[in-house]
Amino acid sequence: MTNYELMFIINPTLEEEKKNTVVEMVQGIITDNGGEVSNVDVWGMRKLAYLIEKKSEGYYVVIEFKAGTDLPKELDRRLRISDNVMRHMIINKDAK
């Protein structure tokens, strides 16, 4: 299993309950596909470097997890079609 780090930005106009639901949904995708979530770090509201979808702030979340090589592709696909996630990035922490 490979170590990965996922950072994603949730739409700041969502209610707190819906933001938590998005975080739980992402964790569910990871665990349902054979991955293990090791750390969830919610940064909260932060100012964006540039406007995204006419918004100047975003709700940042960082998740560290272990998974096989095919899970990041599925996670990327699911996050791209989500209306609540404005941006995301998956990093392979084991690659040098």
Rank of each mutant, 00 (worst) to 15 (best):
T13K: 14
I90K: 02
I52A: 04
N11Q: 13
L48D: 03
V42T: 14
M89Q: 11
L48S: 02
Q27N: 15
V22P: 05
L6F: 06
L48W: 03
D83M: 08
G44N: 09
I81P: 00
I30G: 04
E15W: 05
M89H: 03
V61M: 07
M25R: 15
E57F: 12
I9A: 08
K73A: 11
S56K: 12
E16N: 13
M7P: 04
R87T: 05
V85H: 04
K96N: 12
N33T: 01
T69M: 11
N39Y: 09
M1L: 11
L71Q: 04
G58T: 06
V37M: 01
Q27V: 06
K18P: 02
Y59A: 04
K47H: 11
M86N: 07
D76L: 01
I90V: 15
D41P: 02
R80D: 10
M86S: 02
E17G: 06
E16K: 15
V62C: 09
M86W: 05
G28T: 06
N20Q: 15
N92R: 13
I91T: 11
S82V: 02
L6E: 10
I81G: 00
Q27P: 02
I81C: 01
N92S: 11
V85S: 03
Y4M: 00
K66G: 01
I52K: 05
K55H: 09
V62E: 10
N3W: 00
K73D: 07
I9T: 13
A49V: 08
R87H: 08
R46I: 09
R80A: 05
M45I: 15
D70Q: 13
K19C: 10
A67S: 15
K19A: 09
D94T: 06
V37S: 03
R46L: 10
K73G: 01
N92V: 03
Y4P: 00
S38N: 13
L71T: 04
V26F: 08
E64L: 08
E15V: 13
K73V: 04
E53Q: 14
M25S: 14
M1P: 10
R80F: 00
M25F: 15
V40H: 03
S38M: 11
I30L: 07
T21R: 13
E74S: 10
T31E: 14
V62W: 01
L48M: 12
K73E: 05
N84H: 12
I29N: 00
R80K: 15
E24Q: 14
V40K: 06
V42W: 07
K19L: 08
N20D: 15
F65D: 04
V61G: 09
A95L: 14
Y4V: 00
K18L: 12
K47S: 12
K73L: 06
K19F: 09
K54E: 12
M89P: 02
N39D: 15
I91F: 08
S38E: 14
Y60G: 05
P12W: 08
Y50A: 05
D32K: 14
E24H: 10
Y4N: 00
I52Y: 03
